[in-house]
Design a protein around this nucleic acid. Structure first.
Length: 477
RNA sequence: CGGAAUGUGGCUCAGCUUGGUAGAGCGCUUCGUUCGGGACGAAGAGGUCGCAGGUUCAAAUCCUGUCAUUCCGACCA
């Protein structure tokens, strides 16, 4: 019908142009606005509310593992940033500098934090004296600045919101354990709360964080078959501790260096949610992070009793995030707008329903409609929301599995990368030169060496030397 | 940072080639009728044409610079 046409006209089709579809959804779902500073966006209420829900649920999970929140300055003196060689080399090209205070030039310029390892180290140096002070399990919620050249909402902005966890431990083993623990916490969060399946594994040396001994990652597959790094956890060993002189006195009276970790997740997750779950009608939010889970839409709202009944239903559903859309738009407009914004469930209630003692429930993800007795609405909502959450995960997982291929030789590898989308699993020799050649020749990068290794062959997919690991390759955001 | 494109009321765009002082649709406001998939009528409000220079009697239009946005690459969460 004609009306159906109008819905898809509103945004670019994801099949035609995924990048443009993404940009359209971000704007039309009212998540952000652009500003006059390149790469810095306004997170509008609909977008910020998603972040708040992510933040709240992640924060709870952190605290269950003993993590405490702190807040450190947003400025780093140049001399401090330069203490760890690899770290400064990794970040120097993209930091913003403060050179003046008022009209006076500063004696030492300050960088706006791109990440806070150096600040935490500077702080730990004083905060840690004895083995009794360890471990330190700190996290901060803040924004960081990286002067990116090419920017995209949520995926790559110059300022972005994130959390950065920074821990200090007495032993290497304990640091390693924490690094992996947080990676799994991230992965579980993505899967349980964002309904987004992820691959858990380790980054190659080429892809690891500047200054890290080892970087672990969770990688998700977007709807267009490209990979998105969705969270990372780093083990620094004692590298930073040696650069900054962070020592503690152990039981045996000797001075030892601490072992550190850091881990972070960002507003990029919102981009991931859009690109994993979204469809031709816009955003589809998993119920657990949907700022509005249920929108009640009154029909013929000026008829006596309609708004009252809507309010009654809202009250009955108060354990959920529920709202009534009593604006004087037509119902069709409201339906389309709610779909664009990804609201998981809507309830239609009109005079006919009231007479029949029922209401209509509609799922955002499948558009399935249910006629439900008004008394049954609470039960039905309580049943449908988790069902939507689970179905969304299952669909995302099925999509990833359909788009995960295995390559036994290089011809096959190139063929898959060129002609299909998604992840390619292949064996790799462990040599950076090979990894770089693959990137050069195919555009695919190593996403991660998964914890769950499969022995799909014995030799490197490119060079034929003995293989060291099975790697997920893919084109990445 | 390289390549391409764009910038005109809140949004989408026309006008620019050939300079003469700004238009449409949607949205917004008010009133009325409507309401189960993007309603309708009537009356209104709203723009120094991204910004800064230059050329000219005169610039949305021509020239230079700059900023921002989008897409494609390189780099990154």
């Amino acid at each position: 019908m004609a009306k159906e046409g109008k819905l898809v006209e509103a945004i670019t089709s994801m099949e035609e142009d995924f990048a443009q579809w993404y940009t359209d959804v971000v704007r039309k779902a009212d998540l952000i606005d652009y500003t006059s500073v390149k790469g810095c966006m306004v997170l509008k209420p609909a977008g910020y509310a998603i972040w708040e829900l992510i933040q709240k649920q992640l924060d709870e999970r952190f605290k269950e593992t003993g993590v405490e929140n702190v807040y450190l300055p947003m400025f780093i003196p140049e001399s401090l940033l330069q203490k760890e060689k690899d770290h400064v080399e990794g970040f120097a090209p993209e930091v913003a500098w403060v050179t003046h205070g008022g009209i006076n030039e500063l004696e030492e310029r300050l960088c706006v934090r791109p990440t806070s390892e150096t600040l935490f180290c500077d702080f730990y140096k004083n905060d840690i004296q004895s083995y009794r002070d360890l471990p330190k399990l700190y996290n901060q919620w803040c924004s960081v600045v990286r002067w990116e050249k090419e920017t995209r909402p949520f995926l790559r902005s110059r300022e972005f919101l994130w959390q950065e966890g920074h821990t200090a431990h007495a032993t290497a083993e304990e640091a390693q354990e924490r690094t992996e623990q947080m990676l799994h916490l991230y992965a579980d969060f993505c899967e349980e709360v964002l309904a987004m399946p992820v691959i858990r594994g380790r980054k190659t040396d080429k892809e690891k964080f500047a200054g890290a001994k080892a970087t672990y990652t969770i990688e998700a597959l977007m709807h267009d078959g490209k990979a998105l790094q969705s969270g990372t956890s780093h083990n620094f060993g004692d590298g930073f501790a040696k650069a900054f002189g962070i020592q503690y006195q152990d039981k045996d009276n000797s001075l030892k260096y601490v072992h550190q970790t850091s881990w972070g997740m960002t507003t990029r997750l919102i981009g991931a949610i859009i690109m994993v779950h979204g469809d031709e009608s816009g955003l589809v939010l998993p119920p657990m992070i949907a700022p509005v889970q249920v929108m009640i839409t009154p029909i013929m709202q000026k008829k006596e009793g309609v708004l009252e009944k809507a309010a009654e239903i809202k009250e009955a559903l108060k354990e959920f995030r529920v709202r009534v859309d009593a604006s004087d738009k037509s119902p069709g407009f409201k339906f389309a707008e709610q779909e664009m914004r990804g609201i998981p469930l809507r309830i239609e209630i009109g005079p006919k329903d009231i007479e029949a003692g029922q209401a209509v429930l509609v799922r955002r993800d499948t558009r399935e409609k249910y006629q439900v007795a008004i008394d049954e609405i609470v039960t039905m909502v309580a049943k449908l929301l988790p069902e939507i959450q689970k179905d969304m995960y299952d669909r995302a997982l099925a999509h990833r599995e359909e788009h995960t291929h295995t390559a036994l030789d290089y011809d096959e590898f190139q063929n898959i990368i060129t002609n299909r989308q998604g992840f390619v699993k292949a064996m790799w020799c462990g040599d950076t030169a090979c990894e770089e050649a693959i990137k050069e020749e195919t555009g695919a990068t190593t996403r991660c060496m998964p914890f769950e290794q499969e022995q799909i062959g014995n030799v490197c997919v490119r060079c034929g030397k003995p293989a060291k690991a099975m790697v997920y390759f893919g084109k990445a955001y």
